[in-house]
Amino acid sequence: KELVLALYDYQEKSPREVTMKKGDILTLLNSTNKDWWKVEVNGRQGAVPAAYVKKL
């Protein structure tokens, strides 16, 4: 499985998103959308802005 690093804090704004903190390591589930990537963090799945994460 592919991992990404959170470059910034992000507070979810809808139920389809997830909150992450700078430095979090997230499991990347889907990166086909260039703006929003689906990730899993702390057992929750949701979208985060692609510009806020970097593939490891």
Rank of each mutant, 00 (worst) to 15 (best):
48 V>P: 01
7 L>S: 02
43 G>V: 02
40 E>V: 07
16 R>W: 15
47 A>C: 15
27 T>I: 15
43 G>C: 05
50 A>M: 04
42 N>I: 04
45 Q>P: 07
7 L>V: 08
33 N>G: 12
2 E>T: 13
27 T>C: 13
6 A>N: 01
51 A>W: 12
23 G>Q: 02
46 G>M: 11
1 K>A: 12
49 P>M: 03
27 T>S: 08
24 D>K: 02
22 K>V: 08
34 K>F: 08
15 P>Q: 10
26 L>H: 03
52 Y>V: 09
56 L>W: 08
16 R>T: 14
53 V>K: 02
54 K>L: 12
41 V>M: 13
26 L>V: 07
33 N>P: 06
2 E>P: 11
5 L>S: 04
56 L>V: 11
1 K>W: 12
41 V>D: 03
8 Y>T: 08
29 L>S: 03
7 L>F: 03
48 V>W: 02
5 L>P: 00
30 N>H: 08
22 K>Q: 10
3 L>E: 08
54 K>H: 11
12 E>H: 09
34 K>C: 12
47 A>T: 14
22 K>F: 05
56 L>C: 14
31 S>I: 09
15 P>F: 10
12 E>Q: 13
51 A>K: 14
3 L>M: 11
27 T>L: 14
41 V>R: 12
44 R>H: 08
26 L>N: 01
7 L>G: 01
45 Q>D: 07
3 L>W: 14
29 L>V: 12
19 T>Q: 05
31 S>C: 13
36 W>H: 03
30 N>T: 08
36 W>Y: 08
28 L>P: 00
48 V>A: 03
16 R>D: 15
41 V>F: 14
33 N>C: 12
30 N>Q: 10
24 D>L: 04
39 V>P: 00
43 G>T: 05
47 A>I: 15
23 G>Y: 04
28 L>M: 03
47 A>G: 08
24 D>G: 03
56 L>I: 14
19 T>N: 06
11 Q>M: 13
29 L>D: 02
55 K>D: 05
54 K>C: 15
6 A>I: 03
27 T>E: 10
45 Q>S: 12
48 V>R: 01
32 T>W: 09
20 M>P: 00
24 D>W: 11
27 T>N: 08
14 S>K: 07
19 T>M: 04
54 K>G: 09
1 K>H: 13
11 Q>R: 10
10 Y>K: 00
